[in-house]
């Protein structure tokens, strides 16, 4: 701890932060997990999925983008916020076509794992929108199944900032906002299987698919078969 470091609280627990750190960065370092979907280690923060919403000094903010401040009082795991996070994840399931039993990301999918963690196990009141969305299998090594896309934008940031390519981008507005590729189809971009955006575990769901490697991991050995998402961060605290 340097003399510029300061403390604030998350759900009553004292957390140390360095100047410039976001609430989520400080929480991660302290072993407090704040659920998130659009945020990914090594990528710049976007604050669009709002699953990481916390109350900071009584106001709802995205923990991944909101800077920590000395003495700030943050609420995260309150029943109200947890219910709101669950609703957000539930709406993502209803807005796309997420059929877990046939998806090769099942067991490694962050959306699915978040549903487990937040307890999305009750009968729903929402309709399934069942949109008609394309699959782009034009690239020899990569397929895009946009039925499963949650528009988190992690591939966009990874392609721009890490790969320096800009293969992906947003198009449309509001509920019509979608991820698109910068070309006629994926085969007409400079996407490569070795890109961080493709192979780096950047896509949280089963939208960006590397061909010929699906279903390699048996059930029981996948990322979230035994461990709940976020437990790796929470273990730091124990």
């Amino acid at each position: 701890m340097t003399d510029k470091d300061f403390t604030f609280t998350i759900d009553g627990a004292s957390v140390t932060a360095q100047p410039g750190q976001t609430i989520m960065e400080a929480a991660d370092a302290a072993g407090i997990y704040i659920p998130r979907l659009c945020d990914h280690e090594g990528l710049r923060h976007q604050g669009s999925c709002r699953v990481c919403t916390v109350k900071a000094a009584g106001r709802s903010v995205a923990a991944c983008t909101q800077p920590a401040a000395p003495g700030l009082v943050v609420e995260s795991e309150t029943p109200h916020i947890q219910a709101m996070r669950k609703s957000l994840v539930e709406m993502l399931f209803h807005e796309g076509n997420h059929i877990c039993p046939v998806c090769e990301a099942s067991g490694n999918c962050e959306l699915q794992a978040m549903a487990y963690r937040l307890g999305m196990v009750e009968p729903t009141k929402l309709p399934y929108l069942e949109p008609t969305r394309p699959v782009d299998a034009s690239h020899p090594g990569i397929a895009l199944d946009t039925n499963r896309c949650i528009s988190c934008g992690r591939c966009i940031r990874a392609s721009e900032d890490v790969d320096h390519k800009g293969v992906f981008g947003y198009c449309g507005r509001g509920i019509h906002r979608r991820i698109t590729v910068n070309g006629e189809d994926l085969a007409h971009t400079d996407a490569a299987v070795s890109d961080h955006a493709i192979s780096g575990g950047v896509c949280p769901v089963g939208c960006i698919i590397v061909k010929r490697v699906g279903f390699r991991l048996p059930i029981g050995a996948r990322a979230f078969d035994r461990q709940i998402i976020g437990e790796a961060i929470e273990e730091k605290r124990r």
Binding site: I99, C100, V102, P123, Y128, E130, P131, T132, R133, P134
Partner: peptide
Amino acid sequence: IALGQCAITGGLPAMRNAIMHSD
């Protein structure tokens, strides 16, 4: 009690609801 994904979400049979590019 709805038992399993098909009872809960429609599951695999519901794949016919959104066959690609079909009106």
